[in-house]
């Protein structure tokens, strides 16, 4: 496995993990209140999208720095 693809995979694991994690937390919190299912699912997806956009530029350079 080349360094590039190794970096890409490790980075993906991190930013997907962070985004997925936050989306799950969001979903969990919404289940504690009386939100409609669409809001719960849709909200979780929106949180996932925004978080992945925030996480990618933070995670990728750090992983690159670590492994290059």
């Amino acid at each position: 496995m080349s360094t590039e693809s190794k970096i890409a995979k490790i980075s993906a694991a991190w930013y997907l993990g962070i985004s997925g994690g936050l989306a799950l937390v969001f979903y969990y919190v919404t289940t504690l209140q009386n939100f409609p299912a669409v809001a719960r699912f849709g909200g979780a997806v929106w949180v996932f999208i925004l978080t992945i956009i925030i996480a990618m530029p933070v995670v990728i350079p750090r992983i690159k720095k670590k492994y290059q």
């Binding site: 925004l50 956009i53 990618m56 530029p57 933070v58 995670v59 690159k64």
Partner: peptide, 15 residues
């Protein structure tokens, strides 16, 4: 850009 960990104005448009 995102693939390389870079965000720019296009991302705001795209989102």
């Amino acid at each position: 850009g995102l693939k390389r960990g870079v965000t720019d104005m296009n991302l705001l448009y795209a989102t």
